[in-house]
Amino acid sequence: MKQSTYIKRPNRALQIYAIVFLIVLYLPVLFIPLFSFNDSIYVRFPMQGFTVEWYKAMWTRDSVWAALGNSVTVGFWVAIISTALGVVAARAITRYRMPGQNALITFAMLPLVVPGVIFGVALLVLVSRLGIPLSLYTVSLGHLIICLPFAIATLLPRFEGFDRSMDEASADLGENGWWTFWRVTFPMVAPGVVASLLLTFTISFDEFIMTFFLSGTDTTLPIYIWTQLRFPREFPTVLAMSTLILALSFVMVFIALWIGRLGIVTDNAEDTK
């Protein structure tokens, strides 16, 4: 290590850059909670004083609660289904070597790169050609497509680091495939599963573009916020709602990242230590 110190010596300029970078990254988002406590319907300096009036206004509005309920329901089911599918997919990918496997993985990751608007309209066209009315079910289908790549990407490193001889030992000791999965495989991949559940829930909870095209009369919270943006008087209430969403997302993701040690990046970092 000593010889390489001239490469590793601290770089003051880079350090300052990194701190400024983080501030710029977080500052814009922090204005939302800041102004949600401001006692004025205008978002401007100087601030007018502290109030929780906007949170009270939000509290008493039924449409907010309906939208929140829809978001949570959709998020819950999407998280469970996409994680279950992700587990099956990740297990198959790591266990069996199939021809064209890389092409399949790339295909599964498509929703990460194709513009959301294209996926949104493509699914909208599909459900309308099939005559399926737009509802929370169609929204969930859209979310599922978006969440599946994230679930697979989160679970894949867990399954890759998995020692197959454990499975074999279990089989030698007389367990069948199902019990081997529950008693050996599952406990070892459980952190990945929890992380995947939390992340897919968060993505579904925050998702806007697909929902915009696929939702019917029942809307989710982001769509509700979008419609409220048109009314200047509602602005502070929107800020209050947004603050709650941000807080919830931050907490969920922070837990997910620590439990699951989110995927590839972390595992690499640990390998090279």
Binding site: I32, I225, L229
Partner: peptide, 30 residues
């Protein structure tokens, strides 16, 4: 790594909305 990627997981709509709060005619900067 967590610090750098955490904001990404929050609502895209809200992050865009935050810039409207900042850049608006009567926004934070002005």
């Amino acid at each position: 790594i967590v610090l750098m990627t955490l904001p990404f997981w929050t609502s895209y709509l809200l992050r865009v909305f935050a810039w409207r709060v900042i850049l608006g005619y009567e926004g934070v900067i002005n």
